[in-house]
Design a protein around this nucleic acid. Structure first.
Lengths: 105, 105
DNA sequence: TCAATTGTTTGACGCTCATCGAATCGTAGC
DNA sequence: GCTACGATTCGATGAGCGTCAAACAATTGA
């Protein structure tokens, strides 16, 4: 049974936190690559695809920021981390935001 | 003849700069108040309306950040600064973004 | 011309953040 | 159990940002 890393509830979404998370180019590159995919994906595969040129600790940090902002959900499967965009939750709270920010990149 | 303070062209809009500008609560409060208005307005009147509890230098700094991000246009009329949202330019470059960020506040 | 007013710039301070190397944690496989 | 490996955390460092007081600039009105 897969574990889920801590994440905020929809009600506690904070626009300042969300915009700060999306303001960083590296995190936005991760989000854009993730947003284009229909299905969840392995963290490291996505990071390699995004080709950020950052160290593992830094990438891990960025994933955490995205998750704690409520943008992503992370499942723990063995040594892997499977990540996905929280589309419905984001759409419910800030409709059109993800499309406006990530859609045109 | 009114002078216009320096601002970026639509082509040089940078999403990182725009999101960073909107990520600050004070600046977003200014933008939200400004976005709800159909017409341009005096900077200090808007700032008073937004009730930020910040010093004049800080407010002036925030206005500059918003302007240099391309979010606002500032006209110099005597000692006053008349500010407005660059709706069309923003819509052209990042459709739906302002509505998604400022519409629900 | 001069004083008052309004907005900006400068300089400084404290805080946060992005980043990395090294250490740590947890799982997989033997 | 033990080792290898993937991911996170810790600690440190450097850069950037928000903030304000003080100095500066520009306009108004007498």
């Amino acid at each position: 049974m897969p574990r889920t890393l801590p994440e905020p509830s929809v009600d506690s979404f904070d626009l300042t936190v969300i915009l700060s998370a999306l303001a960083d180019p590296g995190r936005r590159a991760l989000m854009t690559a993730l947003y284009q995919r229909p299905d969840p994906i392995d963290c490291s595969v996505l990071a390699e695809e995004a080709d950020l040129g950052l160290s593992n600790p830094t990438i891990s940090h960025h994933y955490r920021v995205l998750r704690e902002a409520g943008l992503t959900r992370t499942l723990v499967v063995g040594r892997q981390r499977i990540v996905r965009v929280r589309r419905d939750d984001m759409e419910k709270r800030f409709p059109g935001l993800l499309q406006a920010v990530l859609g045109g990149e």
